[in-house]
């Protein structure tokens, strides 16, 4: 995808739609890509850029990727990045409040960015709040447009594009809704386990 003659073996772009809500699955995927020789270098709306890991470097291990979410406090992220760097985590990329960390080669530190349940719960809450703020008005707009969709006869090209766009957006919103429910279940489970102790 997007290949040029000079970089076809060194870089790669993979289209993949992750909303961030299934960040545990995403972390696993990035880790597997790295183990296969493709190191995360950047990301866009629905695609990920990878660069080829130099041969011989870290061939046996499976590097750990961790994502954390801090929507507004970008001003203080330098502190986070500095602490993470000291603790053996490389800040790979920031996208829409999501921060991707990769544990450095040979770093013997604790293999988690978030080490206690309280901070994991806090992260899930930040993610769910941001997702709800995005999802709720978007869904309302979609419902308003649904009635308009039914009234319009999909004959012309413009209407067809409109209808296709509506269904595409609806699919993304349904996916997001399911993932929000999944994350909420995970959050409840974390909190319940905490209450029991």
């Amino acid at each position: 995808m997007g290949r040029h003659s000079h970089d076809r073996d060194d870089s790669r772009t993979v289209v993949r739609l992750f909303t961030g809500l299934a960040n545990d699955v995403e972390e696993e995927w990035l880790s597997k890509m790295d183990a296969d020789g493709w190191r995360l270098a950047g990301r866009g709306w629905a695609w990920y850029m990878f660069t080829r890991r130099p041969v011989g470097e870290r061939s046996t291990e499976r590097p750990i990727y961790r994502m954390d979410f801090w929507p507004q406090s970008s001003g203080h992220m330098d502190d986070y990045i500095a602490i993470a760097s000291d603790a053996g985590w490389e800040h790979v990329v920031a996208y829409n409040g999501w921060h991707y960390f990769r544990q450095r080669d040979g770093a013997s530190e604790f293999p988690e960015v978030l080490s206690d349940r309280e901070s994991q719960v806090a992260k899930y809450r930040r993610v769910l709040r941001a997702a709800a703020v995005l999802w709720t008005p978007a869904s309302i707009i979609m419902l308003i447009n649904l009635s308009r969709l039914n009234r319009t006869a999909a004959t012309g090209l413009v209407q067809r594009i409109y209808v296709a766009g509506w269904w595409g957006s609806a699919a993304v919103l349904v996916l997001m809704g399911c993932q929000m429910i999944r994350m909420w279940v995970l959050l409840r489970r974390l909190e319940k386990r905490y209450q029991k102790l």
Binding site: D79, E109, L114, A122
Partner: peptide, 13 residues
């Protein structure tokens, strides 16, 4: 007790 950098940063904030 081992602290992760994210937990550390969250607590400091």
């Amino acid at each position: 007790v081992r602290l992760g950098p994210g937990t550390m940063y969250g607590a400091l904030t």
